[in-house]
Amino acid sequence: MEKRVTFDEKTLPYLLVLPQIVITLVFFFWPSAQMIWQSMLLEDAFGGNTRFVWFENFAHLFQDPAYYRSAAITAVFSGAVAVLGLALSLLLAVMADRVIKGATAYKAFLVWPYAVAPAVVGVLWGFLFNPSVGIVAWALRNLFGYEFNYVLNGGQALVLVVFAAVWSQISYNFLFFLAGLQSIPRSLIEAAAIDGAGPGRRFWTIIFPLLSPTGFFLLVVNVIYAFFGTFGVVDALTKGGPAKATEILVFKVYNDGFRGQDLGGSAAQSAILMAIVILLTVVQFRFIERKVHY
C-alpha cells in the first residue's frame, strides 16, 4: 500500500505560502514595477518637474558608448569572478576534505572571510595594495620590480576588484562544495581506487559529476553575486575608477542615480540589468542544468 500525505484542506496551503507571497510582492514586485515606471520618466532630482518620455531613457543609453563599455567590463568581471571563485573554492574544498589532522581549524579559517562585510573587504584590499603605503604594492615594487598602482592603472584595478570579490565569496562556495563532497559515498571512491583509478581520474569521473548539482547551484548564485553583490567591494576599493575601468553595471546604476541625480536613466539601467540577469538565469537552467546529475 502506498503511503501518501495529502492535504484535504483547501485554504491551509494558501495560508501557509501567503506570508512569502506578500513579502515577494512588497519587496520584489512592487519596487520592480516602480523602477519600470521610473525608467520612462525624465525629472529633476527633487521631483518638481516630471515628464513621461516613453523609452527615451533607454534610447539614450543605447547611444552611449560608456554604457557599452560598462557592459563589456561587467562581462569580463562577472565571468572572472564566477569562474575563479568556483575553481578556487572547489580546489580548497577538495584539499580540506582530504586533511585529517586539524581539519576543523582549516575549515574554520577558510570560512572566516565570509564574515567580513563587502565594504571592509574593499578597504582591506585597498590598504594592502595602496600604491604609497600598501605592503603588497611595496613588496611587488621592491622585490619584483613590478609597479602596481591600481589608482592609475585600469587593468590592475580590475584585477584587484576581481580578486577582492572572489576572496570574499570563496568561503560561501567552499562550504557548499565541502558539504557536497562529504555527501559523496566513500564506497564509490574506494571501489574506484581498488579498480586502479588514480586521484585525478577519481575526481573527474566520480566526484565532479556527483558534485554537479552543488556546482550548478553555486554557478547561479555566483553569477548573481558578481552582478549585484560586488557593489560594496567596488565602491570601497575603486569607486568604479580609474577612468571607469571598474565601473560594472550595478555601480553605474548607483553612480548615475545617486551621484548624478539622473533617476530616470538610472532606473532604465536597472531594468536592463534585471533583464540580463533573468535571461542568464534562464539560460543556465535550460542549457547547463541538463548536464547536471541529481
Partner: peptide, 19 residues
C-alpha cells in the same frame, strides 16, 4: 548642470592624458 558627472568626465579624460 549635471556637474558631478561632468567632473567625472573631465577626470577620465585627464587621466587618459596622464596615461
Amino acid at each position: 548642470g549635471n556637474f558631478v558627472q561632468i567632473r567625472d568626465v573631465m577626470d577620465e579624460e585627464l587621466e587618459a592624458v596622464w596615461a
